[in-house]
Amino acid sequence: MNQNKHIPLLQVKNLGLTIKNRKYLFFRKKVEILKDINFTLEKGQTLVLTGDAGSGKSSLLHILNNPDIPHTGEVLVYGKPLKDYERRDRVGFIRLLSSDYNNAINPHKRVNFILEQPLKINTDYSTVQRDYRIDRILEYVGLSSSIKYSHPGFLTSNQMLRLAFARALVMEPEILLVDSNIEKLDAQLRSHCLNMLLDCQEEKETALVICLNDIGLIKHIADNILVLSQGRQEDYGNAKFIISKPEKEITKRLIQDYNNEYRIRPER
């Protein structure tokens, strides 16, 4: 029998992050932001991170995005630690999409500069090739290419969101990290965003790591779910099983509270 050792796309083992916070004038207290996180991610899969504020979701995404932050444990991509990859290859793999578009886009530079930056630093394309790539990615997210010459301050919020998408997708990453601000958008924009992410997954087999709090949405898009609380991993597994038969206390409570009396129940 052939022992086909399958190497997963992303594997995280025993990830931990502690920072020292200054408590009194000379005393620094160690705060454990993340402790002992383990999960695996395959190509084309979606992993959803759940947990209330302060549970370390954004910190986890930042570590995946930038492995230079000192952490314990290992982050392996195709079996090789992420730190060992060249920065150019790493940026081509993993990109972070910030949906807090007000703060995440430099308001003083034009759009084509913002989109060109990652290409210029990390790839060897010539100017013409970069231009072409920018045009194509703007077409993909649904922006007209005349927007290249405007400043982000003069765009509407819809256009800024698509620009944030374009900036994340311009390097054609294999893993896309989406932070938790996607839920603060209004319902139409949020569905639109999720549809775009699902499109991307279908066409290019991108793996997604999303932070969501709404269990209904999780049921729609998640393959696996990882529940965090106070930096500790409470529950991890296949989303369908966990939501239909929750075992841990915290997951049970989340699902129970989701089905509360105030949630809308339309008869369809």
Partner: peptide, 29 residues
């Protein structure tokens, strides 16, 4: 109707990776 369609289903079995129903385009300025 479109706002109601944008609410994710929870009480029924849903197909995984189902696309949500949206009105096409953006709200006008």
């Amino acid at each position: 109707q479109s706002m109601i369609n944008a609410i994710p289903e929870f009480n029924r079995q849903v197909k995984l990776k189902m696309k949500l129903d949206v009105l096409k385009g953006d709200p006008p300025e």
